[in-house]
Design a binder for these strands. Structure first.
Lengths: 147, 147
DNA sequence: CAAATTCCTACAAAAATACTCGGAATTCGT
DNA sequence: ACGAATTCCGAGTATTTTTGTAGGAATTTG
């Protein structure tokens, strides 16, 4: 029931961009340094985000990456799907193209996976990058300090 | 965001036992055949369930496995935790012993993982094996046929 | 033109997963 | 008491996925 570092790193990275939204392109190297992630590896992750239309790259000197839309309009669910593929605890309930197992009709467990999938999806889809930015802001102002 | 076959197969297997609760021990071989899982591999999975106190083994001829408690008293969450370890999309929000990352205070994403974890956990903990048995019963009686 | 940077593809190392194998211990039925 | 059925145990292996590394081509700025 775990996320790979793709989702983990990738969300960190896109949040780094979200916090700098409107300030021009941000070089990947600086993101990698701030977040403590290998630059080359991060490059591959951000490529997934770009292909999904969530970030835009600007080539050349002084180039970098930026969000393709306002932080309000990007849901965490989109980010995770771009990085990790369709949300699905098991393949027979994959969003989009479920891979039917041969025993669908007899499978007693499927309803569990459906519910888990929906719980995860609706959680992720209810949070936007802007929401997370606001939270970051609260913390900076000395708000509640979660352990 | 995927479950390994441990959780997948393991839940199938324990459901097989749940549907035969009260009818004496069920040989692992028969479970493996019905569910289409390698017997040797299933053996290892059921060992996890036994160590977690969810099933009991009865050795010798005519032996087999049975639930250690009534199906009502076993939640799917316990089964999944026994097979896959603590529920945690990422290690810094692991149930029980979270592994703090060095950037906890600055991490903008952590709140997402906490919410996902809780959504998954509460979903899994709200379903008992008996619930799934009832559903199976409904289907057998020609109830609604999910795709 | 030089420096900075994205973009692309292929390869490689490490870790986790999904098994296989062989055999010891236990119990039942005869 | 014996043989068959079965759990129980630990070690080994194959496959897949994850997590990177490497090198360089393309693009833009100054």
């Amino acid at each position: 029931m775990r996320l790979s570092t793709r989702g983990h790193y990738g969300l960190k990275a896109i949040m780094d961009l979200a916090l700098r939204y409107g300030q021009g392109p941000v070089a990947l190297r600086s993101v990698a340094e701030r977040q403590g992630i290998s630059e080359h590896y991060l490059e591959q992750l951000i490529a997934l985000l770009r292909q999904a239309g969530l970030v835009k790259g600007v080539r050349g000197a002084q180039g970098g990456y930026m969000l393709a839309r306002e932080p309000e309009k990007i849901k965490v669910g989109e980010v995770i799907r771009a990085l990790e593929g369709p949300i699905a605890p098991v393949s027979c309930v994959k969003e989009g193209d479920p891979v039917a197992c041969d025993r669908v009709t007899y499978c007693r467990a499927r309803t569990v996976w459906l519910r888990v999938r929906d719980a995860v999806a609706s959680t992720l889809d209810s949070i936007s990058l802007a929401d997370l930015c606001r939270e970051a802001e609260d913390v900076r102002k000395g708000g509640h300090n979660a352990t």
